[in-house]
Structure formats: structure tokens, C-alpha cells
Design a protein around this nucleic acid. Structure first.
Lengths: 258, 258
DNA sequence: GTCTGTGAAGGGCTTCACAGCT
DNA sequence: AGCTGTGAAGCCCTTCACAGAC
């Protein structure tokens, strides 16, 4: 039986059968953070930074510096002692480790409110993903153009995935259609699926799935607030003001520039 | 200094100063899964199920049965040995534990593509959240109506949050505005923020934040695929077919019905 | 002196196996 | 007989502290 949910709290003990790639030994938790570091490094690079220390990068990423160094150490030696990390070099190293240097091609199924938002979101290209196909079942939607792509009928999905050489499928359909679409994506040979349906979809072991469930995020938020707010309900507006004054930590500090 | 990122891999060791609530002792990982169980229980209830066993609920949620029982045990005794769990009762118990029985009121800032999708998403009401305010900076957008709510100018944000008695703020603005909006939400007294900006926003300790970063989800997906696909690239379409035949596990099984 | 890389200690979560109730 | 609740073992991850390179 296939496990369906990976979601936000993955505990996949599953390992590939062969031990070829170095990837194998990177902890799941570290992988998630590597993606964060990559994003922050992008901001630093845009600002013209050349070298960054573990402390600075850690602060900007919201983690401790020791944890950051440990995380990076899984990729091998990346920095220079007494100096710091070369921004461009580290960035390339992480991209390579995450497999982003091959350029993923994304197909999106379900062009409702959310699908339209995803199709129009420009942030993907900047981070190594290109949207290559849009699909929907509604004839009123098929044929329309979003972000330079024409929406196709979902019946063409499997064939198109192969033609487009897609590597990632995104499911943004209503819940009732999610499993069916998922099966088609899997049948077409995709091994990466990102689902916005709250349902736990059935997938074979060789397919990787992540789920984004917005209502669930809010529920966890709700609990954590309750946990941090014992009945003695302290109003403390000046803590907010103090923190607000700090500003984005990527903008100050002693980052080396050209 | 405040840590900004909680995100998908939270490790917040932070604890409330007083130890009043029972909440305190529930592991973070368990909280995340409780939200999943709650969703599955909702589906079961809709189907008319009265009693469910740990094994069935676990399968439908994508976790092991032992883990599920352990998770539920943090809420105290909830089932009947030799029988199973009362669906309605367990559902109410989890809702109460997550603090969802008080009805959260949500304000959304940033009515772009994503914001519009969120505003129009019907799934929130069904799960105990009601959208009570929409805000944007663009005069062309302010005044329009989405899902029965009129978009207000973001300058009214702080005052409106208080008037509307909002408890959760959602940030769906462009990155450049995110920190500013965040500060305003915090200043208005909100203690729960859900951000769709990839930036690590600065918040004071008493505020709980979760971040949803779509590009990051895809990056993690990309890596996990690479990890599970050693160079010997095995095509295995029949695994897909086998799994597809299983169907949603909430639909079969020996769930007790009226 | 500064900052990275890392063994070792510690904590939290998962898994196992079974005691206990119906 | 069946299923829940739970101590205990084991594992993974985080944190600490320092050796090592510059």
C-alpha cells in the first residue's frame, strides 16, 4: 500500500534502492532548510554580496548559525574558515544538490481561482521552474490564454505530459477530481506531484508528493497561538514596536560587497 | 531578536510563560497531524460513519496506526477499547484542542491573483474560519467586492482589525510590502499570521507565524524525487496502475454506519 | 582573532510490543 | 477476540563546544 500524505510534516523513511547519489544521506529536515537558504542567497546575490558568514546567513534565514553550518556540511566543504561562504558558489552548490540545475518543467491542472493565481505567478521562473502546460475540464476555460500558455482540455493531459517532457505536476482541481487527475499524472510518468487538495491521494512508492493545505496551516496556527497565550492574556504592544524596528536582517550587517 | 521563520519545518522551542493550558504538552508534530485527522474525520462524518478504528483512520490519513493512537492519547482517552473511536465525539475533541471551537476571524491583505483565490475559496468557512476583511493598496482594486466582502484601503488595516475582532491575518502582498503589512497586523494586536511571501518576516515572540512558499515546496519535491531515483531509472507503470485501483481508503473498509 | 566544520551530548519523535479494558 | 492506551527502546535531529584552517 502506498502512503499518500507527505505534506508539511514528512517522515518518509523510504530510501532509494541503490546508493548511488550522495543525496541519500541528507536529512529531510535539512533539505527543507536548504531551499530556504537558497532563497536568501538569491536576495543577497541581487544586493551584490560576495561573501557571507554563517551567522549572517543564519539570521536572515531564521535559524541558528550552528544548525546552518551543520546543514551545509552535508554538501561537503563549502566555505573558507576565518572568512565565510562565497555567495555565488554556495548558491550553485545548493541548486545542484537539490537537482534544480536541470530546469524543471511544470504542468498545472485545474484552472479555477487558485490555478489562475499559480499560472500567473511569476516567482517560479526566477527559481528554476517553468510552467509548460495548463489543463482544465471546463470547455468555457479551455482555449483561453494565461501567462502566454493556452489552457488545454484535461483529456489531453497524459499525452501532453509526455510531449512537454514535464517533470512536476500541480493539482489545483476540486477535491472530487483530484485522485483521478493524480492517477493520470502518475500514468504519464511524472514522479513529482504538488497537490492543493486536502485529500490524501493514493500514489505508488516511486512518486513523490507534497501537499499544501491552507486551512490546515491556519488550524496549526490557531493552536500555536493558544499555546503561547495562557489565560493571563498579556497585551504588550511595545514588543511589537521593538521588533518592527529591527527590519529585514539581510539589509544590514557586514556583508562584503564589491 | 525574533525568529521569523516557522514555515514547514518548525522547531520552535518557545513556550508560553505560564503553564495553564493542557496544550503545552502536545508535540508540534502531533499538532500538525491532528489537523489532518480532523479533515479526514469530516469526510467520514459526511459519509455517515459513526465509529472508526485507529487502523482505518490512520490509513485514510496516511500515517501508521500506532502513531495515530499516540497522537490522540495526548488529548486524553478518546476511544473505547475493543471498539474504536466515536467519530463525532473525536472530531469535537480535536476541534476543541486546536482552539477551533471559538471561530477564527480572518483578514486578508493583498488582493492580487493569489489573494483573489484565497478570498473566493469556500473551504475556510467549512473548517471554522470566516473571512471578515479584505485589504489592498491599489485604488483600482479598493471598493470592489469579492465573496460578499468589499476590499478596503490598506491604510484602514490596523483600525479595521480591531473593529472586526480579527484573530488571523493573511499576507498575500508582493514581497516588498510584506514586512510593512506584517508590522501593521502585529501592531493591531493580531497574534496569528499566515504569510505567502518567501521572505523571513520579523515578528515579536508572542506572535505565531507560518509561511507557505510554493516555490520552496517544489524545490523539496525536486530533491526528494532525485533521491528516490538512482541512475538506474526504472520505468514501472504497473505500480501506478495497482495503486490507482486502490481508491480513496475512506470509501471502503468496515466503517460502522447507521 | 575569526569563522568554518564536526564529534558528542541531549531532546524530541517514532516505532514497537504488550498490558488493559470491553 | 478485538482494539485502545502507553511505557520503553531506538532513531533522527538539534544544540553545544571546540578543534582546525585562514
Amino acid at each position: 500500500m502506498a502512503r499518500g500524505v507527505t505534506g508539511a510534516a514528512p517522515s518518509a523513511p523510504r530510501r532509494g534502492p541503490s546508493a548511488a547519489a550522495q543525496h541519500r544521506d541528507i536529512p529531510q529536515a535539512t533539505v527543507t532548510r536548504l531551499a530556504t537558504y537558497l532563497r536568501v542567497l538569491g536576495v543577497l546575490a541581487d544586493e551584490g554580496a560576495l561573501i557571507v558568514s554563517s551567522e549572517e546567513l543564519a539570521n536572515a534565514s531564521g535559524v541558528g548559525s550552528a544548525k546552518l553550518r551543520k546543514d551545509l556540511s552535508f554538501l561537503g566543504p563549502n566555505g573558507v574558515r576565518g572568512v565565510g561562504y562565497d555567495v555565488a558558489r554556495l548558491r550553485a552548490r545548493i541548486e545542484s544538490a537539490l537537482g534544480l540545475d536541470r530546469g524543471h518543467r511544470v504542468v498545472l491542472v485545474g484552472i479555477g481561482n487558485l490555478g489562475r493565481a499559480l499560472a500567473g505567478y511569476g516567482g517560479f521562473d526566477r527559481r528554476g521552474f517553468s510552467m509548460v502546460g495548463l489543463f482544465d475540464r471546463d470547455p468555457a476555460c479551455v482555449g483561453s490564454t494565461i501567462g502566454g500558455l493556452t489552457v488545454r482540455d484535461v483529456t489531453e493531459l497524459a499525452d501532453s505530459c509526455r510531449d512537454l517532457e514535464a517533470t512536476i505536476g500541480v493539482i489545483a482541481t476540486p477535491d472530487a477530481a483530484a485522485q483521478d487527475v493524480c492517477d493520470q499524472l502518475v500514468g504519464a510518468g511524472l514522479r513529482c506531484i504538488l497537490s492543493f487538495s486536502p485529500l490524501a491521494l493514493e500514489i505508488p512508492d516511486h512518486v513523490e508528493m507534497r501537499r499544501v493545505d491552507l486551512a490546515m496551516e491556519m488550524q496549526v496556527l490557531s493552536f500555536n497561538m493558544a499555546r503561547n497565550t495562557p489565560p493571563d492574556e498579556q497585551r504588550n504592544p511595545q514588543a511589537a514596536a521593538a521588533s518592527a524596528a529591527v527590519g529585514a536582517s539581510t539589509r544590514n550587517g557586514s556583508v562584503i560587497r564589491p
